[in-house]
Design a protein around this nucleic acid. Structure first.
Length: 461
DNA sequence: AAAAAAC
């Protein structure tokens, strides 16, 4: 695995051998490969060579030339063959010298496994110092990523540590864990206090990268962490299902000379999810409808998204008082409580989770087959003109919408989403979402419970 | 008029 005279990497041994045996230039491309090049687009940082060459694609994990213990971990996690994005991303991620990557593919297509594998395969287990760090926008997501690290690394000697609020470190003194996963504030704190030794870090991953780089707090915190890290030989990996234009430029600066890989546009906007809306009369009617939906919400598992923490608290308290079993989760809760709530939901002990945007991104729970936007996701928009004083929450937040409904329909499963609209304004917002995502949102009659039930069961079949 | 994320 060496950089050749053209500065173009030579891929891992097995893939290179099989490709040259077959005479890569002249070999007839097989049908699967054509299909995958059609759906996934790759832009190589050095602009050299053919990004669609078979050299850049794998069909089995064996071709990556990984250590046996890592392969065992991959199969232990239940992956039998690489997903679409993994076929193309893994050879680039694992090539030497390490190259930055900006990767975009829809929810539930295997991004996490791709970057976790990269972290694990680059760690030197004989050195007890931190070599890979990963940041996520919420503690829930950081914990989920960690479980992938631990499971995939099960047959390796990997040591891990969390950088999340209130987490008690395994040992006092400096962290010796190979891989640290966490949220940016705590990660920065541990680095600033030299509890994490940054000198040996060679992989830096941002999950939900567009969110992590966006202004308004998270972007600054993420940048602060990055500025602590070694500048040379650092592989920076940015992954998300969405990269809105206003962060794309910043992302390219943050991860310079990155290989770029993305699923084609149509594939991005969640094809397996049937989207509906319900016309509610007013805010109070939204609550009534939600209660009437309860039986359907518990067929599998469901997530109800609200705009405010107090809304999540209020409707969950009300439903509980009325005898319905629901859980609520948001960032104002005690960290230990948050851990219990999400774990119980993951274990299926809770069927209905009423929450905020805290788990809009990344959370992967296969049994979730219904997502309700009790409140549509909105973003703050500054008033234009006269000095830009003030702003308002009127603009639909398309990225958050895509991430929210992506909590269902994981890995090609069926899922449905229901949007509550209750006045002209929310109806227009939903129309904008429909337009921006290019997918039809079907109306469901609110006063016909039978029709409601029939439509939903049909969608889930 | 938000949510998330640090002490």
């Amino acid at each position: 695995m060496e950089k050749d005279a053209d500065g173009f990497y030579t891929p891992v041994a097995a893939a290179a051998a099989s490709a040259s045996d077959a005479g890569e230039e002249k070999r007839a491309p097989n049908a699967d490969l054509i299909k995958s090049t059609f759906e996934v687009s790759v832009t190589l940082a050095d602009q050299q060579g053919d990004p669609n060459s078979p050299l850049h694609s794998i069909k089995t994990f064996e071709e990556l030339g990984l250590h046996q213990d890592l392969l065992k971990g991959i199969y232990h996690l239940g992956f039998s063959k690489p997903s679409k994005i993994q076929e193309r991303a893994l050879p680039l991620l694992l090539a030497n010298p390490p190259t930055n990557m900006i990767g975009q593919s829809q929810s539930g297509t295997g991004k996490t496994a791709a970057f976790v594998l990269t972290m694990l395969s680059r760690v030197d287990f004989t050195k007890n110092t931190t070599q890979a760090v990963c940041l996520a926008p919420s503690r829930e997501l950081a914990r989920q990523i960690m479980s992938v690290v631990v499971n995939m690394g099960k047959f390796t000697p990997v040591q891990t540590e969390y950088a999340i609020k209130d987490h008690i470190l395994r040992d006092s003194g400096p962290i010796t864990a190979h891989i640290v996963v966490g949220t940016p504030g705590t990660m920065y704190d541990l680095m600033r206090k030299r509890i994490i030794n940054v000198a040996g870090i060679k992989v830096f991953v941002l999950d939900e990268a567009d969110n992590m780089l966006d202004q308004d707090g998270l972007g600054d915190q993420t940048l602060r962490v990055k500025n602590m890290l070694p500048r040379d030989h650092l592989q920076i990996l940015l992954f998300s299902a969405t990269f809105p234009d206003h962060v794309r430029t910043f992302a390219s600066k943050f991860a310079p000379a990155a290989n770029k890989i993305e699923l084609q546009k149509e594939e991005l906007s969640v094809t397996g999810i049937r989207q509906f809306y319900m016309d509610c009369k007013n805010e109070e009617h939204k609550y009534d409808i939600l209660v009437r939906l309860y039986a359907l919400l518990t067929i599998g598992q469901s997530i109800i998204f609200c705009q405010y923490k107090h809304t999540a608290d209020r409707i969950s308290a009300r439903m509980t008082a009325e005898g319905h079993k629901v859980a609520s989760l948001h960032g104002a809760k005690d960290p230990a409580e948050r851990d219990t709530i999400i774990d119980d939901f993951r274990d299926g002990k809770e069927k209905v989770l009423i929450t905020t945007n805290v788990i809009a991104r990344g959370i992967d729970i296969l049994q979730v087959n219904m997502v309700v936007n009790y409140d549509l996701p909105l973003m703050y928009e500054r008033n234009t003109g006269n000095g830009g004083e003030g702003g308002h929450f009127d603009k639909p937040d398309i990225e958050t919408y895509i991430h929210r409904i992506g909590r269902t329909g994981r890995f090609g499963r069926r899922g449905i989403s229901i949007n509550f609209v209750h006045d002209k304004r929310t109806w227009l917002q939903m129309e904008q979402i429909e337009k921006a995502t290019g997918r039809k949102i079907m109306r469901i009659e609110t006063n016909d419970v039978d029709e409601m039930e029939e439509k939903m069961k049909e969608a889930l079949k």
